[in-house]
Design a protein around this nucleic acid. Structure first.
Lengths: 116, 116
DNA sequence: TCTATATTTCTAGAATTAACGAAATAAAGT
DNA sequence: ACTTTATTTCGTTAATTCTAGAAATATAGA
């Protein structure tokens, strides 16, 4: 990891977001949350529905929250978790493609039709 | 990792695709490839442009290829690598949201406007 | 066949991440 | 203050992934 890159902070952030999604267990938990919709679920209910509980669930939720993929807020003595919004996933996906063909010698138009 | 899930194979595949994108170094390499456009780059040139070379690059490319994010084909004694296409990223992003709100008690329409 | 070039496999130590029990903290009710 | 419920922090062990050097393989050309 020894290369200089002006947009390096973005790469770092995008990579850790993808990494957050890159665990089968976290992906499962996140999808349970997405299925639950905008009202969200408590940690307890999320654990019950996903089969991932206790400190393990806390650990995974922390990673998902740090990536901005879930929100957590306290309500009394429970924590309500709410899943990603669509726009965020769009942004993440776009990140990969946004400089597409910038270094290509041939005219852009030729390829651009493939991903309008 | 002890929960049964009918769609478990899909989750596994999606998770490993995200995991493939979840390394700063791999993400950097992949973006260099995306910048290069549809003609692709040889491993050597990709290494020169990205700063990741040798067995380390081979290792990362294997992971990206297994995830279907790059294609590799031999041409003489070099290997040409070509980056992701847009449709694949769209699919990956969609995976997360496709069952959105399925378990939500309230009517779908209320939330659906947020992510047409 | 011999040599040079391009890339991969093998191997292993370092670093990171996962998993989980036990103890700790936070809020609410008695 | 004490108890119960909900969740997190801490500490520790296991598992996975990263990184890179050295040897191996594949192809092309002399």
């Amino acid at each position: 990891m020894k290369h200089e890159n002006t947009a390096s902070l973005d790469v770092t952030r995008a990579a850790s977001t993808f990494a957050a999604l890159g665990s089968e267990q976290r992906l499962h938990v996140l999808r349970v949350l997405v299925r639950a919709g905008p009202e969200g679920l408590t940690i307890g209910e999320l654990g019950a529905r996903s089969g991932v509980t206790g400190s393990t669930l806390t650990h995974h939720m922390k990673i998902l929250a740090a990536a901005g993929l879930v929100d957590q807020k306290r309500r009394g003595r429970q924590i309500i978790c709410i899943g990603v919004d669509f726009a965020r996933m769009q942004d993440i996906a776009a990140f990969l493609l946004k400089e597409c063909c910038a270094d290509s010698p041939q005219p852009h138009d030729t390829h651009e039709a493939n991903h309008g």
